[in-house]
Design a binder for these strands. Structure first.
Length: 438
RNA sequence: GGCCCUAUCGUCUAACGGUUAGGACAUCGCCUUCUCAAGGCGGUAAUCCGGGUUCGAUUCCCGGUAGGGUCACCA
């Protein structure tokens, strides 16, 4: 499939990669890849004062984490001569002019380059919103460069999109009103007008533009919080687009990057802003956590709970299932471990308040029953089977609560059978004997 | 304020002009259960308002209202 679909993400390195920019990158990536095209990263660092290398590094780190691989990378600060050439061309053709004006920062007079506005109506067809018309008269003769070597945003964007053969400009709807200016410049340099698709913004819960005051907005914040890249990608795809729409409609919502490439549809992207819903992200993240191969999961859990490696494989997988049903992200696990949430699996609990055991009357019988379970088959199932009738006869709470409490020292924990299996027969009985002698 | 965009459950969203307005997250209830989770099952919950067009509007048109974006020698 050889066509000329080329898209780009053009962040300016004046802040960390924002979740909204990342979602725009995702849509650009998906659209390019599903059409066998190229996805390009262009660092828009023409503002020397505000651009910082650390932000560029953050952008690259975030895109890499999300697996949004770009085919080409450019930095506008390295292309100044190109802009200068085009600038000269526009000036020579009389479509822009030098203008001596008092600098806005009060630093004396400077000569800026203004675009000679033809004052006409511009209509473009937005792939998502249909025809949009602007009267450029309201724009005046806008400035396109501070001087011959310092192009401003609109000029640099148009020149680059032209030079880089960008076929589709997919960007946030905050750029809709920038489009007529850019079309005017494109016409002035004789460039093809790319196809535009303005996607809806990501909003904060109060429907305002999502910003730092609403908490974590940088992609790397989510990386650090222990979210999975696949979950993040899946979640962002669902913001403003739905697999439920279109001819290939499905109610399924779990799609990784490769699957999204196949089913994403730019035409069914929504046109209204979407609120960032953390609950759904968390749910999605757990879904992806469950999908992780055990080896990978153990590896990750070891970072926070090294003791898990001392367990046998089958016991590891039981503990994993216990852990996964209690966390949404790895940082949840980190917190649980910090608060001693899983200590009892590895260290006997210290029980000082024996009234917490409630009823100790059946402890000796419980021990006797557990001692009869075959040592080589001491599993949650065999333990449960051995104990069940006895517990039912005495009142399950009368038998099971003290057993569970003796094993864990916790008011809340997984059931005593599964805890017993992980601890093993010897340790289980030892813990029970200890409290039985109170 | 000018210009532009938008409007379906709390949230994300689906519905060739004809559907009991569907799904997911959240929430509530039930089941399971010694506890906490997880899981299973079920429920509550929406077409912003007013006019048209039409036999029939969530859907098409107009107006209103509301929200958002943008109006730099930032991007």
């Amino acid at each position: 499939m050889s066509n000329n679909i080329r898209t780009r993400i053009a962040p300016s390195p004046t802040g960390w990669l924002h979740i909204g920019t990342a979602r725009t990158a995702l849509f650009n990536y998906l659209f390019a890849k599903q059409n066998g095209g190229e996805f390009i990263l262009r660092i828009e660092d023409t503002d020397k004062a505000r651009s910082k290398k650390e932000y560029e590094d953050n952008i690259i780190e975030a895109l890499s984490w999300l697996n949004l691989d770009y085919d080409e990378k450019y930095r506008q600060s390295e292309r100044l001569n190109i802009y200068q050439t085009y600038l000269q061309k526009i000036i020579d053709s009389g479509k822009a002019y030098l203008s001596l004006e008092q600098a806005m920062d009060g630093s004396g007079d400077i000569e800026v380059v203004r675009f000679k506005n033809p004052n006409k109506k511009i209509t473009f067809t937005d792939l998502i919103r249909g025809d949009i018309t602007f009267d450029t008269t309201d724009l005046g003769d806008f400035v396109i460069a501070k001087n011959m070597l310092t192009p401003l945003y609109h000029l640099a964007v148009v020149v680059d999109d032209h030079e880089m053969n960008i076929s589709h400009v997919i960007r946030g709807e905050d750029h809709i009103s920038n489009t007529p200016r850019q079309i005017l410049i494109a016409e002035a340099i004789g460039a093809n007008i790319p196809l535009y698709a303005h996607i809806p913004l990501i909003l904060a819960p109060d429907r305002s533009k999502l910003s730092k005051r609403h908490g974590a907005v940088a992609i790397t914040d989510y990386k650090e919080k222990g979210y999975l890249a696949d979950a993040m990608v899946n979640f962002m795809a669902l913001l403003g687009w739905s697999p439920q729409a279109g001819p290939e409609a499905t109610n399924e919502e779990i799609f990784n990057l490769d699957q999204l490439i196949k089913i994403f549809n730019l035409e069914t992207v929504n046109n209204s802003g979407a609120i960032f819903n953390l609950d759904k992200l968390q749910w999605l993240n757990r879904e992806y956590l469950k999908l992780l191969p055990q080896e990978k999961t153990v590896q990750e859990i070891e970072k926070y709970l090294p003791a898990i490696s001392s367990l046998q494989k089958d016991k590891q997988s039981i503990l994993i299932s216990i852990i996964l049903e209690k966390i949404y992200t790895w940082s949840d696990l980190e917190n649980l471990v910090k608060n001693g949430g899983f200590d009892y699996f590895f260290t006997p609990p210290i029980i000082t308040d024996k009234t917490k055991l409630k009823n100790t009357a059946h402890l000796q019988d419980t021990i006797a029953i557990l001692e009869k379970v075959a040592p080589d088959d001491f599993t949650s199932t065999t333990v449960k089977n051995a104990l069940w009738d006895f517990a039912t006869a005495k009142g399950r709470g009368e038998v099971l609560w003290p057993m569970r409490y003796a094993l864990t020292g916790q008011d809340k924990s997984p059931d005593p059978f599964i805890v017993a299996e992980i601890l093993g027969q010897t340790e289980t009985i030892a813990r029970l004997k200890k409290v039985a002698s109170f």
